[in-house]
């Protein structure tokens, strides 16, 4: 059932609305039902989640008898952004994922953030699907703040995703959707995968299978589990290496995504098209899993080229 969870007047004619698709059990006894919210499109230039929402809604449409809980799908949290390739909240040029929990009386992005929180509040689980940005391509991964690791890592494992990254808490991330929802008691996972402005079909298919598996395991749907790939997990012992460009130029990668790299292996080159010269050759600093690779070729000094998880641990 399509429901509108937020509506506000814009200056000229239009109204800004947030919509969700709610799936409930056919037999309407709501008592004790678990509820999950699938959220995406907080960053308007991240489209990977659109395909995941489609695949989930399609399965749920086709299998109404297998639904045992409530599944809410929110494909576009920043509707003007999604429909205009705008990452931030249009006009205000702020990152919607930095104004949570929002407020009904603050500026428009905060009102939207508040509308999202009020709609999702009360869910047992939430999954916030991001697609990196236009610069980087990410292996499908769940990112978890260290302080929530004990609670969220077991849940993330149920999705069977390629990589779980437990990172240190950063003060500015306290204004994100996931931090707010975790504080309010909704177990919220942040998924990053693929690249901005694109859809990577295989990633979308894998993640939607993974989310259906997870929903089966927590009793929201009834479906046999499908096999999933292996999950790498960054722990306190393993180390994530950041490789930044030492110079300005054009990055030409040598490796495809999702590969195990060896120490000293060539990741790519920074070239100068005017001079016809290779300015720098980038080598892997360790053996590990290449989970982030530069997608947008033009780089400055400092532009992130790759992230590698050292000491791959298989679980």
């Amino acid at each position: 059932m399509i429901e509108e969870v937020f509506r506000v007047n814009l200056p000229v004619e239009e109204q800004l609305t947030l919509k969700r698709n709610r799936f409930s059990p056919i037999d309407r006894d709501a008592a004790g039902q678990k509820r999950i919210s699938i959220v995406t499109g907080i960053h308007g230039d991240e489209i990977e989640g659109q395909y995941v929402c489609f695949l989930l809604a399609k399965w749920l449409n086709e299998n109404p008898d297998k639904i045992h809980g409530i599944i809410d799908i929110y494909p576009a949290m920043n509707p003007m952004g999604v429909d205009s390739i705008t990452r931030g909240f249009p006009f205000y040029d702020v990152d919607l994922n930095r104004v949570f929990p929002g407020s009904t009386t603050d500026f428009l992005p905060a009102q939207v953030a508040n509308g999202i929180v009020q709609a999702v509040k009360g869910s047992d689980y939430a999954i916030d699907i991001h697609a990196s940005n236009i610069f980087l391509k990410e292996l499908p991964q769940v990112r978890i703040s260290r302080s929530n690791a004990d609670e969220l890592v077991p849940l993330a494992k149920k999705i069977g995703i390629d990589f779980i990254w437990v990172h240190d808490a950063v003060t500015v991330l306290e204004s994100t959707f996931s931090h707010t929802m975790n504080t309010l008691g909704t177990k919220t996972l942040v998924v990053e995968m693929g690249v901005g402005m694109r859809i990577t079909k295989a990633y979308g298919q894998n993640l939607s299978e993974g989310i259906l598996n997870m929903m089966s395991q927590v009793g929201i749907i009834n479906r046999p589990l499908t096999p999933q790939g292996k999950t790498s997990i960054s722990t306190l012992n393993s180390q994530v290496h950041f490789i930044n460009s030492p110079s300005a130029g054009v990055f030409i990668p040598s490796l495809e995504h999702n590969v195990i790299v060896s120490k000293g292996e060539k990741l790519g080159e920074i070239i100068n098209p005017l001079l016809g010269e290779v300015k720098d050759v980038l080598l892997s600093p360790c053996d590990g899993l290449l989970f982030t690779i530069r997608e947008y070729p033009v780089v400055y000094e400092g532009s992130l080229i790759a992230r590698i998880l050292e000491d791959r641990k298989e679980i």
Binding site: N9, F91, L108
Partner: peptide
């Protein structure tokens, strides 16, 4: 010159 609802 265009203002949003609840804008300061």
């Amino acid at each position: 010159p265009l203002i949003f609802q609840n804008a300061i």
